[in-house]
C-alpha cells in the first residue's frame, strides 16, 4: 500500500509548497463541484438551490445543528481510528462492523445492570463498546496475520457478519414486545439516555469524547515512539522488521485501537443518539470515515474540519427530498466526488 507523502521534499521552498497545496485544494474543490453540478443538471434540478440547502441546511436551526454535531462525533471517532490503521498501511474496511459490534457490546451492560447509577453504567457501556470493537478488529487482524486474508476482504466479511449478528439479536433474543420488532430493540429508559442540552438531541459528552480521542491519536502519532514505529510499518513492513519493529504486533495494535474507537462510536450511537439497538446502527459512518481519512491523507489536524463539513452535507441533505424533491444521496455523491478529485489533484501536482 502506498503511503502518501506528508513532509515536503528537501530543497523546495515552503511558500511554493503552500502555494501548490492551495492550488491542488482549489482544483479538488472545483472538480468535485463540477461533477456534482453536472449530475444535478442532468436530473433537471437547480444546482444553486440544492447547494444552498446542502451547505447551509445544517446551520439553519439549533435542532439541525445538534444533529450535525451528533453525526460528526462518530465520524471523528472512526476517522481518528482509521488514521492509525492508515499510518500502519492498512485499509480497514471492517470499520463498519467494528461500529456495529461496539453498539451490540454497549447493550450488554445496559440490559444486565439497568439499576446501576447512570454515570457508572455509561462508563461500563462505553468500555464494553470499546472492547467489542477492538475484539472484532482483532479478528480481522488474526485473519490477515494468521491466514493471510487481506484486511479489506476480512473486514468486509466481518461487516456482513456483524450486521447479521445485530439483526439476529434484534429479532431474536432481544426482541421487543408487540409489532415493529424489526425496527429495533425496546427503547432505553429515559434516565439512561446521555443527558442533552435543553430539548435538543445534542449530548455534549459525546463530541467531547470524540475530540479527546482525536487529540490522543494526534499525540500518539506525532510524539510517541509507538506512533513512529506504526508509520515505519506502514511505509515498509520489511524494513521496519529489520530495524527490530515487530510489524505483526503493530498491525494488530493499530487495528485493535481503531476497533476500540469505532466501538465507542457505536456505543455512543446507542446511548446518545438512537437510545436502542437498530439494524442500521452505524448508518454508514465507518465508510464515510474512510473517505474523510483518504481526503486528508491521514493527517489528524484535518480530521475535525473535514468531518464537520461531511456531517453538515449529510444533515443538510435530509431536507432535500421534502423541499426540492431531490434525492438525499447527492450528499454522498459530493463527498465521493471531493475525495476522487482530491486524488486527481494530487496526481496532477
Amino acid at each position: 500500500m502506498q503511503q502518501p507523502e506528508i513532509s515536503p521534499p528537501p530543497g523546495v521552498a515552503p511558500t511554493r509548497i503552500a502555494f501548490s497545496a492551495l492550488r491542488s485544494t482549489l482544483l479538488a474543490l472545483l472538480g468535485a463541484l463540477a461533477l456534482t453540478t453536472l449530475v444535478l443538471l442532468s436530473t433537471g434540478v437547480s444546482p444553486l438551490e440544492t447547494y444552498r440547502i446542502l451547505f447551509f441546511g445544517a446551520f439553519t436551526t439549533p435542532g439541525r445543528f445538534s444533529d450535525m454535531l451528533m453525526l460528526t462525533t462518530p465520524l471523528v471517532l472512526c476517522a481518528s481510528g482509521l488514521t492509525l490503521t492508515f499510518a500502519a498501511g492498512l485499509y480497514n474496511l471492517g470499520v463498519e462492523g467494528q461500529v456495529v459490534l461496539g453498539a451490540v457490546a454497549a447493550m450488554i451492560p445496559l440490559r444486565l445492570l439497568p439499576d446501576l447509577p447512570p454515570p457508572l453504567l455509561w462508563t461500563l457501556s462505553l468500555g464494553a463498546a470499546a472492547l467489542g470493537g477492538a475484539l472484532w478488529a482483532l479478528l480481522a487482524a488474526a485473519l490477515r496475520l494468521g491466514a493471510r486474508v487481506n484486511e479489506i476482504f476480512a473486514g468486509l466479511g466481518l461487516n456482513f457478519l456483524a450486521s447479521g449478528l445485530a439483526l439476529f439479536l434484534i429479532l431474536g433474543p432481544w426482541r421487543r414486545e408487540g409489532t415493529a420488532a424489526a425496527s429495533g430493540t425496546a427503547p432505553l429508559p429515559r434516565e439512561l439516555w446521555l443527558p442533552t442540552i435543553d430539548n435538543l438531541r445534542l449530548a455534549p459528552l459525546a463530541p467531547m469524547l470524540a475530540l479527546l480521542a482525536l487529540a490522543l491519536v494526534w499525540w500518539l502519532l506525532s510524539s510517541t515512539r509507538w506512533g513512529l514505529e506504526l508509520r515505519a510499518v506502514g511505509l515498509s513492513p520489511a524494513a521496519a522488521d529489520r530495524l527490530g519493529v515487530a510489524a505483526p504486533r503493530r498491525i494488530s495494535e493499530a487495528l485493535a485501537s481503531c476497533g476500540a474507537l469505532a466501538g465507542v462510536a457505536g456505543g455512543l450511537q446507542v446511548i446518545g443518539v438512537f437510545h436502542q439497538l437498530i439494524p442500521n446502527i452505524s448508518s454508514g459512518v465507518g465508510l464515510l470515515g474512510l473517505l474523510v481519512v483518504l481526503l486528508v491523507l491521514a493527517r489528524p489536524i484535518w480530521v475535525l474540519p473535514i468531518s464537520l463539513a461531511f456531517a453538515s452535507f449529510t444533515v443538510g441533505s435530509v431536507q432535500l427530498p421534502l423541499t426540492l424533491g431531490v434525492d438525499s444521496s447527492i450528499a454522498g455523491v459530493l463527498q465521493g466526488a471531493l475525495v476522487l478529485s482530491a486524488l486527481l489533484a494530487r496526481g496532477l501536482r
Binding site: 500500500m1 502506498q2 449530475v39 442532468s42 436530473t43 485499509y91 474496511l93 479489506i152 465508510l287 474512510l290 473517505l291 483518504l294 434525492d327 444521496s329 447527492i330 454522498g332 455523491v333 463527498q335 465521493g336 466526488a337 475525495v339 476522487l340 486524488l343 486527481l344 494530487r346 496526481g347 496532477l348
Partner: peptide, 27 residues
C-alpha cells in the same frame, strides 16, 4: 488516476466504489 497519475489503486477503487453507489442511488 492510478496508472498515469500515481495514485494508489486501492484508494481510487474504493472511492469509485462508494461514489458509483451514491450515483446509482441518486440517478
Amino acid at each position: 488516476l492510478s496508472l498515469n497519475l500515481g495514485q494508489s489503486q486501492t484508494a481510487v477503487g474504493f472511492v469509485l466504489a462508494l461514489l458509483c453507489t451514491e450515483l446509482s442511488s441518486f440517478l
